[in-house]
Design a protein around this nucleic acid. Structure first.
Lengths: 193, 193
DNA sequence: AAATAATCTTGCCATATGACAGTAAATTAT
DNA sequence: ATAATTTACTGTCATATGGCAAGATTATTT
C-alpha cells in the first residue's frame, strides 16, 4: 500500500504524518471490473472510493429517461456522491466502471470518526468540498459561456484518457449535446489538431 | 433579534438550543444599501451573510469581460463565496446589493471557532455544503437538458421576486442567454401565463 | 421638465445544435 | 467465423439562439 498515493489525495498542512497513517489504515483495497456498479440509483451511498487505477462514469437519468453523464473518475480522483453520503438520503446517481481497476474504499461510519477526531482531516474535508463547489460552479459557467466545440477541446486537453477510452455518446451527454453533434464536432476539429 | 430566523437557517438535529444561542451571538447585524459591494473580485472573502431582507446578486466576468450572473440571494439565503472563504484565496466573484436590506454577518475566525467547538455546527456545515453541491449539480444538469424557455419558466415559478426586481440582462446572463433572446422568450410565453 | 443614459424590444440574417433516418464500422455474443 | 448488437458517422431539414443595429420605453440626472 503506497503512502504517496494517500498523501497526494489527503493533502493538507494540518494532516500530520501519523494522522495520515490512521487515515490510510481506515481504507480497504478493492478491485472493480468493467461494467460493475459502485453506486446504484435509489440506494444510499455508504462509502466513497479513492481510485488507484481504472476509469469510472457517473450518470443520472433525465426526465425522459436518457442517461446524462455527470462525471468521470480517473486514477487519483475520489469517486463519491456527496449528496447521498452526507445527507443520508438515497442517491439519484449511478457510478459504473468503464474499465477494470483498483480503488480504496472508506465507509461513512469510519469517515465520520476521522472527521470528528482529526482536526486536520475535517479541515481537509471542508477544503475539498469548497474546491468541488468551485469546480462545479466553473463547469456551470463554462456550460453557459462556451460552445460545445470549445468544451470538447478542453476535455481533450485536460483529460485525454477519457476521450480515448469512453464511448462518444457518454462524452456527448457529459458535454450536453447529442452524439450526432459530437460526431460532427470531431470531424470539424480534425483540421485543428 | 429573531431566533426563528436563525433557527430556520441553522437547522440541524444536532444543534441544541443553547448552541443556537452561541451561534446567534456570533453574528452581527448590518444594513446594506442598493449598489454596495459585499464582496469584490480580487479580495479574499472573510465573512458570510445571512440575508434577513433585500436582494443580492453574485457575478463574475467571463473571458471577454462580460458580466455573468452566477447567483441571486434573497431573504433567508446565505450569501457566501465558499471557495474564497474556505480555501483562503482571492475570489473571482462580486456580490452586489440590488436593493437595500438587512443581513447578519459572521466572520471566518468566529465561524472557525464554532466549527471546531460545536459538533452539531460542523455537521450542519457539512450537510449545507453537500446540499449546495447537489444544487449546483442540478443546475448544471438543467443547463444541459432544458431549454432557456423552460429555465426561465422555472425561475418565475421558484423565484418570482427575482423576476420582478432584477433587470432582464442579469436574468439573461444567469440563464446563459442574451438579453435579446430573453426578451423574445418573454414575449413568447405571455400566452402561457 | 428637459436632457441624458440605461434598458428593453424588434427585425434581419447567420450559425450551432437537434431530430430522425439510413448506412458503415466496431464490438460482442453465439 | 457468423450473426447480432451496439456504436459512430452522414444527410436533410427544423429550430433555438446569437450578433448587430435601430427604435421604443423607462429610469436617472441636471
Amino acid at each position: 500500500m503506497n503512502i504517496n498515493f494517500f498523501q497526494s489525495i489527503y493533502d493538507h498542512p494540518l494532516i500530520q504524518r501519523n494522522d495520515l497513517n490512521v487515515i490510510m489504515n481506515t481504507h480497504e483495497r478493492i478491485n472493480f471490473s468493467k461494467g460493475s456498479l459502485l453506486l446504484k440509483n435509489g440506494k444510499m451511498a455508504n462509502e466513497y472510493y479513492l481510485i488507484e487505477s481504472g476509469l469510472l462514469r457517473a450518470y443520472v437519468h433525465d426526465f425522459s429517461g436518457n442517461e446524462i453523464t455527470t462525471d468521470f473518475y480517473c486514477a487519483n480522483d475520489i469517486a463519491i456522491e456527496v449528496s447521498s453520503l452526507f445527507q443520508r438520503i438515497p442517491t439519484k446517481e449511478n457510478i459504473i466502471a468503464l474499465t477494470n481497476g483498483i480503488a480504496w474504499k472508506i465507509d461513512f461510519e469510519k469517515f465520520q470518526n476521522l472527521f470528528h477526531s482529526i482536526e486536520g482531516f475535517r479541515e481537509w474535508g471542508r477544503a475539498w468540498m469548497a474546491r468541488q463547489l468551485f469546480i462545479s460552479k466553473q463547469r456551470k459557467i463554462e456550460m453557459l459561456t462556451k460552445s460545445a466545440t470549445e468544451r470538447y477541446k478542453e476535455l481533450i486537453k485536460d483529460n485525454p484518457a477519457i476521450v480515448q477510452h469512453v464511448p462518444i455518446k457518454h462524452i456527448a451527454s457529459y458535454l450536453g449535446i447529442t452524439d450526432t453533434s459530437l460526431s460532427r464536432i470531431r470531424k470539424e476539429i480534425l483540421f485543428d489538431l
